[in-house]
């Protein structure tokens, strides 16, 4: 396994007897953009929850050489694991700049915390440019457009200096142009990071996925490049059986 990659072995998450994730093995190399797809209830978000420490899980999740399971959420975050949520979770009463500055500051000492921010830190300024919100840095995050909120979330992962990015439906509800811009942004930031994306949008997947893992009922159903996964009869069967609408997208 390459240093800095994500390596999951035998991951199992059980809620009150219901097995949400059932023995998943998954390897994502640095620089990869891995898409996680699967019908509703396949365990995609639960898997991300387990990796980030939100839900208890058994098995092993290693990022680089470090075991993540059993650590607190904020400790895992400090190891360089960042995530976004299906619905953008920003600090709506704070400005874009304040959101980014908080994301950048988990390592700050008490003295810095107790003082007022005098200038925009370099990494924050860089992220503002990267996500195209430099002109809106003093806008309250709650008043941003939907797409801009998702970008701000990604920007927060950048300044947080996350090496492993777990994005939960980053382009849901976005216009076509916004999806393109988001995809290009992902391509840029994946160069020196590991990116995992949960996504339902098949057009977006075809354009920007480098590899794909299909989950079904808590297990890995298929894995490979977009073409390999699309050609897999098991995948077609699951999608036909569970979600007719999505199956068209897969076959198209």
């Amino acid at each position: 396994m390459t240093a800095g990659g994500l390596s999951i072995r035998g991951l199992r998450v059980v809620f009150d007897g219901f097995v949400a994730v059932d023995g998943v093995d998954l390897d994502v190399a640095p620089g990869d953009i891995r898409f996680l797809i699967g019908p509703n209830g396949a365990g995609k978000t639960t898997l991300v929850d387990a990796v980030t420490g939100l839900v208890k899980a058994s098995g092993s999740v290693r990022f680089g050489e470090t075991e993540l399971l059993g650590r607190d959420v904020h400790r895992i975050a400090r190891l360089g694991v960042g995530r976004t949520f299906q619905t953008a979770a920003l600090f709506e009463e704070l400005t874009v700049l304040q959101n980014l500055d908080i994301a950048a500051g988990a390592g700050r000492g008490p003295w810095t915390m107790l003082r007022t921010r005098r200038a925009v830190p370099d990494d924050v300024a860089f992220a503002l440019e990267a996500i195209g919100l430099a002109g809106r840095r003093d806008t309250l995050a709650g008043t941003l457009a939907h797409g801009q909120k998702q970008w701000l979330e990604i920007g927060m992962l950048l300044v947080q200096n996350a090496r492993l990015l777990l994005l939960d439906e980053p382009v849901a509800g976005m216009s076509h142009e916004e999806r393109e811009a988001t995809g290009e942004l992902l391509g840029k930031i994946a160069a020196d990071r590991t990116v995992v994306v949960i996504e339902h949008d098949m057009d977006f997947l075809r354009r920007f996925a480098r590899t794909v893992t299909v989950l079904h009922a808590g297990k890995v159903l298929s894995e490979g490049t977009v073409a390999q996964v699309q050609a897999d009869p098991k995948v077609q069967e699951v999608y036909l059986g569970h979600a007719a609408a999505e199956s068209e997208a897969v076959e198209a």
Partner: peptide
Amino acid sequence: QLMRSRYGELLVAVRDSEERVRFLGYNP
């Protein structure tokens, strides 16, 4: 001074979205 400091901003962030702050590496 506390309210205007970075701590003050973080405190508002914790008030509004404690879980999110945790995912940024802080202990709320």
